[in-house]
């Protein structure tokens, strides 16, 4: 079992303080943990893409009476999904940025101009100014297989909010009822 989620007794105190859950009805952290615990792989479509919405803010974890390491659990559930070839399009792009440039957020002309105004080198002294450094990064990502992992993942459709709401409507109603009970 990933992390220490066997300690969870489904009290829902995690969901009740979750800022993403407050804004996004489809995001129910307690539910995801329960599905993971029960090994409901067939209902994965309910977890992906939603599990990727977590901001990793630790509020749920701080509020859990059972000391469950929720953020570790979220990251581990995501890692399983990614290793099954499921990534969000936006995250695949971020992955490709890292592979190509060594930065998740690489420089652009606007940044270079601002750096000039501040008297900084146009390119920061990172891997962006070091061909050798970049080739080291690429070697490491080849050794870990990260380049392949990103290249071969199929992109999960990033549901528009409305589509997501419709898809999850029943499930959410049930969830709200459960949480009120």
């Amino acid at each position: 079992m990933i992390s220490n989620i066997e300690r969870c007794y489904q009290c829902g105190q995690c969901t009740s303080v979750c800022p993403m859950g407050e804004q996004e009805q489809t995001y129910r952290i307690r539910r995801f943990l329960q599905m993971e615990k029960l090994g409901l792989e067939t209902e994965e479509s309910m977890v992906v893409p939603f599990i990727f919405y977590c901001t990793t803010c630790y509020k749920c974890q701080d509020n859990c009476p059972q000391g469950v390491n929720l953020v570790d659990a979220v990251l581990a559930i995501r890692e399983k999904a990614v290793h099954k070839g499921k990534m969000l399009e936006a995250h695949k792009k971020v992955g490709q940025m890292l592979i190509n440039y060594g930065h998740a957020v690489p420089t652009n002309t606007d940044a270079m101009e601002k750096r000039g105004l501040l008297g900084l080198e146009e390119r920061p002294p990172t891997v962006q100014a070091s061909i050798e450094g970049l080739s080291e990064i690429k070697t490491l990502m080849r050794l870990t297989g990260f380049d392949k992992l990103v290249a071969e993942s199929e992109v999960e459709e990033q549901l528009t909010e409305n589509a997501a709401m419709v898809q999850q409507a029943d499930f959410t109603q049930q969830q709200v009822a459960e949480e009120k009970a």
Binding site: L98, V127, F146, L149
Partner: peptide, 22 residues
Amino acid sequence: DDLEGASCCPAPGVFRSFDKTT
């Protein structure tokens, strides 16, 4: 000191959850 040739940290929420070894 400048940390020449440093890369993305890499970001904890995304890359750690894509592949922990990387």
